[in-house]
Simulated assay, not measured.
Amino acid sequence: MRRQTIRDVAKAAGVSISTASNALNGTGRTNAETIERVKRVAEEIGFRPNALARGLLTKRSHAIGMLTNDTYGRLTLPMAAGVSEVLVDHGLSVFLCATNNDPRLARLHLETLLDRQVDGIIFTATRLDLKPPPELAKLSIPVVYAFAEGPADRISFFPDDAQGARLAVEHLQALGRSHILHITGPEDYLAVRVRAKAYRECVNSNAEVLYGDWSEEWGHEAIEQIFSRHGKRPDAIFCGNDEIARGVIDALRDKDLAVPRDIAVVGFDNWEVISRQTRPPLTTVDMELKEIGHRAGLAILGLTQGETVPTGITRLPCRLVVRQSCGGPPT
């Protein structure tokens, strides 16, 4: 079947081509009855506007680019879903481009997005202290940073890691856990240092933090380190991510210790592939990535429509998802 054109719509609705175009684009002085008839006919015959022609008319591509270094999409896909939910009702599409931390690939993707004349760009990263491509700051189109920090005069959204860490520790304290240990990822990550600082503020300024990898293997190894020492064992463990937490729980089980009866465990991320399947299911901190995407989508939409959007950093609150790995007070 051939593609239906504006000429077909006009003929079926009994109006001129210019009137049909005005009715569908909301331009001119077409009366309400004609607009309704033209739109109804366009839907009935399966007419879809030509995006290129529409772009020439409105001076917009009705597309947003998302540039990310997140190869596997663990962080970016939930944010992209949030962005898309905001933009789809406004007729905007999203092009997602992964850079794989390769500056050359980032430049190529950026050039492609600019060649497509996207109306704006959202940049996302896998860590808050990763520097965005410097070219972004020089663009004349709107740029918003999500889970990344842009220049002071731009708009950035990321999770409040300190608040998230406090949620986890204070929940354990409310359950009566008094010897809480923190096992987390590499110390060179800004988020790791921010969470560790918040943990110490809740527990003890001199409390030990065990730094390692973002892996289940590190969770196992950390438990071996702890239990090879003499001294009081923890009654709760706050982990830097869900993978570490699952490794910790498996290692405790190997030592015939029950979670949460003997030791309560809390993770961070709420990566449901892991947190729901852990045994017992894992209490964890959700960074609300989809909401970050929502906020970034609303910001880029406002900017493309010529609205004034406040610049600077917005830290969005995390949420504690309570499951069975914490239980009640220690026995």
Rank of each mutant, 00 (worst) to 15 (best):
Tyr211Arg: 07
Pro159Leu: 10
Gln277Phe: 12
Asn241Cys: 08
Ala236Asp: 09
Leu92Ser: 09
Val259Cys: 08
Leu92Ile: 14
Arg246Lys: 07
Cys326Leu: 00
His179Lys: 14
Thr331Trp: 01
Pro134Glu: 01
Val192Ala: 14
Ala81Cys: 12
Val94Ala: 03
Arg3Asn: 14
Glu170Ile: 06
Arg295Ala: 13
Arg29Phe: 10
Leu167Ser: 05
Ile17Ser: 00
Pro186Leu: 05
Leu24Met: 13
Met287His: 15
Glu307Thr: 04
Phe95Ile: 14
Ala20Thr: 03
Ala125Leu: 00
Lys39Gly: 04
Leu57Pro: 01
Thr311Arg: 10
Val15Trp: 01
Pro330Ile: 00
Glu208Ala: 12
Leu67Gly: 01
Gly28Lys: 06
Leu75Trp: 14
Arg193His: 04
His171Thr: 06
Ala13Gln: 08
Trp271Pro: 00
Thr308Pro: 00
Phe147Gly: 03
Tyr189Asp: 04
Gly150Met: 00
Glu111Cys: 07
Ala148Ser: 14
Ser16Gln: 03
Gly120Cys: 04
Trp271Glu: 10
Thr308Val: 14
Val203Trp: 05
Gly219Glu: 08
Ser140Cys: 05
Pro142Glu: 02
Gly231Ala: 01
Glu216Gly: 11
Phe158Met: 10
Asn101Lys: 11
Val38Ser: 06
Ser21Lys: 07
Ala299Met: 00
Lys197Asp: 08
Glu36Phe: 00
Glu111Ile: 12
Leu114Ile: 12
Ile226Asp: 08
Gly82Pro: 02
Asn270Val: 09
Ile263Glu: 06
Ile292Trp: 03
Ile6Gln: 08
Arg193Met: 12
His230Lys: 12
Trp271Tyr: 09
Ser21Phe: 08
Leu252Lys: 00
Lys59Ala: 14
Pro330Ala: 05
Leu252Gly: 00
Ser156Lys: 01
Ala80Ser: 09
Ile35Trp: 07
Gly297Pro: 04
Val266Trp: 09
Leu75Asp: 09
His109Asp: 07
Gln277His: 13
His294Lys: 10
Asn204Thr: 11
Gly306Arg: 03
Arg279Gly: 12
Pro49Tyr: 01
Arg177Cys: 12
Ser228Lys: 14
Asp160Tyr: 00
Thr19Gly: 05
Cys239Tyr: 07
Gly28Cys: 06
Cys318Leu: 03
Thr126Tyr: 01
Asp119Met: 00
Thr30Lys: 01
Leu56Ser: 02
